[in-house]
Simulated assay, not measured.
Amino acid sequence: MKLISTIKTICFLGAGLYLFGLTEDVYVDDIDPIDLLGNLGIIFVLIEIGIALYQDQETHKLSFKSLFSKDTLTLSPIEQMANLLGRVGMVMIMLSFIYNFIDA
């Protein structure tokens, strides 16, 4: 339980540090739009991981019986938004990687 709390804190701190560095680069006007896309994607993914780890552990326990039932996990609206944010973030990271790969 302590490890999950530590990882959750690291995710939120990492997202905050990325956001701070991103705003500093924008302020200095030393950023490429593709790098901005990738960094925003990383921030979104870190926020999604932090929110997913923040949720109550009792509601997400799976047993062998409930593993094959239809409705194993029901997500709250915050979890659904975080899930969408994480997916958008992964697409942004992939687009940034593909563009940098093709451009090089």
Rank of each mutant, 00 (worst) to 15 (best):
K70G: 13
D29Y: 13
E79H: 00
L53H: 02
S5Q: 11
S63I: 05
E58I: 03
Q55R: 15
K8T: 09
I42W: 03
F12L: 14
G50S: 10
D71M: 08
L36H: 01
M81I: 14
F97C: 04
R87S: 03
M90Q: 02
I10Q: 11
I10R: 07
G89A: 05
N39D: 06
F12Q: 07
M1K: 07
S66Y: 00
D35Y: 10
F68H: 10
T72Q: 09
L17V: 09
D71S: 14
E79I: 04
S63G: 12
I47C: 08
E48A: 15
Q55M: 04
G86W: 02
I34A: 01
F44Y: 08
D35G: 09
G16Q: 08
L19A: 09
L36A: 01
S76T: 15
T9K: 14
V45L: 10
D32V: 01
V88E: 00
I98S: 07
T59E: 14
S69N: 12
L85M: 15
L37T: 13
F68N: 14
G16P: 12
T9P: 00
A52N: 07
H60N: 15
I7R: 00
I49L: 12
L53G: 00
D103N: 13
N100L: 13
G50K: 05
F97A: 12
L85F: 08
L37Q: 15
F97P: 00
M94I: 15
L19R: 02
Y54V: 03
A15N: 02
I93W: 00
A82E: 02
E24I: 10
Q80W: 10
L40K: 01
M94F: 11
T59V: 12
R87K: 09
I34L: 08
V45G: 01
M1A: 06
C11Y: 09
T74Q: 14
L75I: 05
P33R: 12
V91A: 15
I49M: 14
I78K: 06
S76L: 07
D103K: 13
F20P: 01
T59L: 14
F68A: 08
I4W: 10
T23M: 14
L19Y: 05
E24F: 12
D103F: 10
T72D: 09
G38H: 12
N39T: 15
I51Q: 06
T59D: 01
R87F: 03
M94K: 10
C11R: 01
T74S: 15
L53P: 04
F101K: 06
Q57P: 11
D30W: 02
L85D: 03
E58Y: 04
L84M: 08
Y27C: 09
